[in-house]
Simulated scan of single mutants.
Amino acid sequence: MTELRNRALQLLARREHSRAELHARLATQAESGEALLAVLDALEQQGLLSDDRYARQRVVAHAGRYGNARLRQELKQRGIGESEIEAALPEAGDEVERCRAIWARKFGQPPETPEARAKQTRFLQYRGFSHEAIRHVLRGVEDE
C-alpha cells in the first residue's frame, strides 16, 4: 500500500490529476480496489488530491484557447463533477473577450462573404464558444 501511495505522490508531483485519472492510472498497480480507494481517500483528506483544484487549474490553463463548452466537456471527460465544473468556469474570465482574442489572432479581419463568415463561425464553435459569444464578436467586428 505504501508503494501505491508513493506512485500516486510521484504522479501528483508532476502535475495535478483528477481522482478519476489517478484511479485509472493506478488501477493496474493496486493489489485490490479497496486498497486503491483507501489511498485516494487518504490523499484527498490530506489535501494532496482535489478535483476542485484540478478543475480550476485546468480551466485557467486552457481558457486562452477554448470556450466554456469545450472546457466543460474536457472536465467531464476527466471525471470532474458538475459542481466542481460550475465553480471552476468563472476562473476562465469573460467568454466574449476570450472569443474576440482568439478570433483576432486567427482571422483579424471581418468576413467579406457569407462563406468566410461561416468558416469563422465554425472555427469558433469548434473551440467551444457559445453562439451568443460568436454572434457578439462577429457582429461587433462587422459594425466597426
Rank of each mutant, 00 (worst) to 15 (best):
A118Y: 11
E142I: 15
V59S: 06
R122E: 12
D94I: 01
G64A: 11
L40M: 09
R139F: 09
L11E: 01
V137K: 04
A35G: 06
V137Q: 05
R5N: 02
S130Q: 04
H17N: 10
L37P: 01
A61V: 07
L71E: 03
L26S: 07
A118E: 15
E144K: 15
E115T: 14
T121D: 09
R65Y: 13
L26K: 11
T113M: 13
R122C: 04
R19M: 08
A69V: 02
L26D: 08
A8Q: 11
L37N: 15
I102F: 07
A63V: 10
H17E: 03
A116N: 11
E74N: 09
M1N: 04
R56M: 09
E84N: 05
N6I: 02
Q73C: 08
I134C: 01
F107R: 00
L4M: 01
E44Y: 09
Y66I: 00
S32L: 14
A61C: 06
S83P: 00
E142W: 10
G108C: 05
F107P: 02
A101R: 14
S32K: 11
R14K: 11
R127K: 15
T121V: 07
L4V: 03
V96E: 05
R105E: 05
P114M: 13
Q10D: 11
W103I: 08
R65L: 14
L36S: 04
S130M: 03
A38G: 08
A24M: 06
T121K: 07
L75G: 04
D94H: 04
E82P: 01
S50K: 08
L36G: 04
R135M: 02
G81P: 00
A42K: 14
A101P: 05
I80T: 03
G128S: 06
R19K: 14
E97I: 08
L75P: 06
H23K: 13
L36P: 11
G64M: 06
H62W: 08
A87Q: 14
